[in-house]
Computed example of a mutant assay.
Amino acid sequence: MPKNNITLADVAQHAGVSIMTASRALNNKGDVSPGTREKIRQAAEALGYRPNSLARSLATNRSTTIGLVVPDIANPFFSEIARGVEDEAHFHGYNIFLCNFDEDPQHEQAALNSLAEKQVDGLILCSSRQEESDLQTQLKDFRHCVLINRSLEEPQPHTAAILLDDHQGAMQAAGHLLNHQRRRIAFLAGPPRSRSGQKRLAGYRDSLIQHRFPFDPALVHHCQPDMHCGKQTAVQLLNTIPTPDAILAFNDLIALGAVQACLERGLRIPQDIEIIGFDDIPLAALITPTLTTLTYPKKEIGRRAMQTLLAMSHAQAIETVATYAPSFIFRQTSPE
């Protein structure tokens, strides 16, 4: 008999038990002795039995699939979060539908619509770029949702949020540069729709005010969160007079582009200009000079998001809002 035609009845017959007992054993349910459970498992393995996922989803009203949506999977920050989600999902027998929306709100909406049509068991959405009203509407299509780095102004009962304290991180970074006697600190901000970018900009501005230095909007430039745009924007800043003596970047990719622009200009880092990024991607420790940055436990955040989603699906108590504080990683572009 072809293995793809093996049924639960075949397994039960091979093990000499009822279909109900075989079902309970293979689904880790009910009162089945360890010896019988092992005999059924061996029978299933010998016959090459694979559960019918469609039949199981109809019986349990669960698909054992989770939607994971990120702005840019090529960004190591999001790929590490995705790895944490996938590791935890695999441990619990779930599969992941990964969607990438390229920092485009309309592309994000299309991804969410597709996942809703697939009736995934839950959604993990990273750094949504949608307006509040649009996001509120789309989240209603999912049973359970965990937002990473985004919160709702009016939380829904089936949602939870894992937040990053970007405001405090930017305040720390700008304060560190001011303590190094840097006085023209440029901020290479990310996409205008990014909530992290908005919070980091606010932290940068508040740190200047706290240290009694004026906030200069001319030193703030928005750009896409990649190396190419980081380099282009840094070149524009270096053409201004007077030039910046420090750069705080929205993320490490932008910061690495700024490092490249400064080196090509003949500037010494950190003597002439200091640079700080965010995220601590692997490349930050490999370039020369190595990049000072702020970091979050990215894989842990991904695992926690999946754990929270599973707890919600089993009606367990959860922490509806969790916040992670960043840690400084001091390297050569801005020493301690």
Rank of each mutant, 00 (worst) to 15 (best):
I254M: 07
Q236I: 01
F250H: 12
I247P: 11
F250K: 05
L238K: 08
P217Y: 07
A218R: 12
V235I: 13
Q236D: 09
F250S: 00
Q236V: 00
A249L: 03
A255K: 05
P242Q: 11
L237A: 08
Q224C: 00
T240G: 05
I241F: 08
A255F: 07
H222T: 03
P225G: 13
R212N: 12
N251S: 14
S207N: 08
S207I: 08
Q232D: 12
H222S: 14
F213N: 04
S207F: 02
I254Y: 03
L248A: 04
S207H: 06
T240P: 04
D216T: 09
I254W: 01
C229S: 15
H211E: 09
L238Q: 05
Q224K: 12
V220D: 01
D216I: 02
K231T: 09
N251Y: 10
I247H: 09
H228C: 12
M227R: 15
A246Q: 08
N239H: 14
A255N: 00
P225K: 06
Q224I: 03
N251V: 15
L237M: 13
V235K: 15
T243I: 06
V220I: 14
D245F: 06
L238E: 08
Q236W: 01
A246G: 11
P217R: 01
L237D: 02
A255I: 06
T233P: 00
T243M: 12
D216P: 04
L237T: 02
A234P: 00
H228E: 14
C223L: 06
